[in-house]
Design a binder for these strands. Sequence first.
RNA 1: GGGCCUGUAGCUCAAUGGUUAGAGCAGGGGACUCAUAAUCCCUUGGUUGGGGGUUCGAAUCCCUCCAGGCCUACCA
Length: 522
Amino acid sequence: MSDTFFITTAIDYTNGKPHIGHAYEKVLADVLARFQRLAGRPVFFLTGVDQHGQKVQQSAEKQGVNPQEFVDTLTASFVALWDKLDVRYDRWAATTAPSHKDCVRKILQRLHDEGQLYKATRQGYYSVRQEQFLTDKERGEDGQFGPEWGEVVFLEEENYLFRLAEHRDWLLHLLDQNPHLVQPDFRRAELRNAVEKLSGDLTVSRPKARLSWGIEFPFDPDFVTYVWFDALVNYISFAPGYDPAPNADLSEFRRHWPALHLIGKDILIPAHGVYWPIMLKALGFKDSEIPTLLVHGWWNIAGSKMSKSLGNIVDPDVLADRYGPEALRYYLMSDIATGRDADFSEERLVQRFNADLANSLGNLLNRTLNMAQKYRQGVLTAPSQPEHLDLVREALPVEAAAADYRAAFEQHAVHQALEAAFRLVAACNQFIDSQKPWAVAKNPDQAGLLDAILYALADSLRVTAILISPVLPKAARAIFGQLNLDAPFQIEDARRGLLPTGHQLGTPTPVFPRIEPSAPAA
RNA sequence: GGGCCUGUAGCUCAAUGGUUAGAGCAGGGGACUCAUAAUCCCUUGGUUGGGGGUUCGAAUCCCUCCAGGCCUACCA
């Protein structure tokens, strides 16, 4: 069992610019990774891009550049966006990297040697224009292939196949024995149904004459590998210490593996739920080394799927520029339940930012620091009287919030974790209004009470900053700055009473300036 | 055609078969002045998609229909 939290995302296909779905997945992975770092666990976060394949080859030809140039340009736009959104990964998986190609070839060679790959002839109808085999799905009402396919010819083609079907029962058994392997559980049910129907093996090659932009088979230069043994393999080829040789020393690899694969619901079946575990099994992975799949939902636009043809693509780059990267991160994490779909709304992004961040948390920080400066020159005194300690303990549920927060994160329920953090914020605002520190300040006899109130508020803000830090790392750091703290964030410190008497607070500057509704909209 | 998921307040979501279905936001009213025209209090708002059934009791379990989504399949 590994001690590292190894998280991966899907690697994005470099045939178009990143959209909001790409951004959501990477931010979610980043947030889960940051939470684990906060909890003191070693983290390895792998993400990247899938650069091979026919669409890339075609798009590059259309632009008159070579495929590598084409993918380099698009890859740069992904890298720049993750940088802008503060997605902090540990390694970048780009499938044209020599080390990756080398690993893929070794895996293919090994599976070939062990009889898991075989060559077979396939025949069927082939669209010359689309450069793909057609199934009966593509037939129209009249049983004919429509004009969109252009010239359709009957073709016979040799290809390599991977022995998938023989592992079907193993996979069924594995899924039944390890319910946690696919989350949420309704996705597991879906996958199980699909596995039960599994029949036939998997084509893993394309003849080079038809597709040149790919990894060549080491034992047959007439073929390149087709997506599965290229893209999926990134999870191990870029993992620390993996070596596909049958008797390799995998001790370093095993300190990291197995991974938590964060994927979208569109690629669970068949790629990640069927092909990938069976590929690993064929490579000698034990049942306990099969990775967990965390399947997330989609952001719809006004109830319908985001798609190029509908022209409703949401550009995360534009949103980050318009509202700030952290406003976008907060919206993406707070307004969807992990695993479910949600509706994307720019208006709602603004609403949530203003309500939660500007009005509740930002204003709390501001009013707390202002009062501390006005009444105590920003110097804190820890409460000592039992009645004050009791008052604060009863009013501000610091430990409960932290506990709920952790429990939510263990289930990857980021939105619930944020809710827990904001329950503490709400309690602080209520506490201020009920205690009326501005009135207490007028009575010198109540100096101890005022100190206790101000201390509890500053201390709670410290805890809140820690709790929001996985989602809002920059804002959390800014809050720490105004509290005059520079300690690293750690979940262990999410408990009350860690500020020393005499601690000098800083002065307030709005961390979350309200977004005015009149601001330019889409 | 088969399978799976979803449907709860205007919006986003909660409710091991068990008080009168809750919370946040939005809407309405009020209070306060430390604060980013913020905050706090009160409040409007529901045939839990429809219809049957099981039960002392159903948002929850069963059947059926409707709407949306996803997967899958060689009927014509």
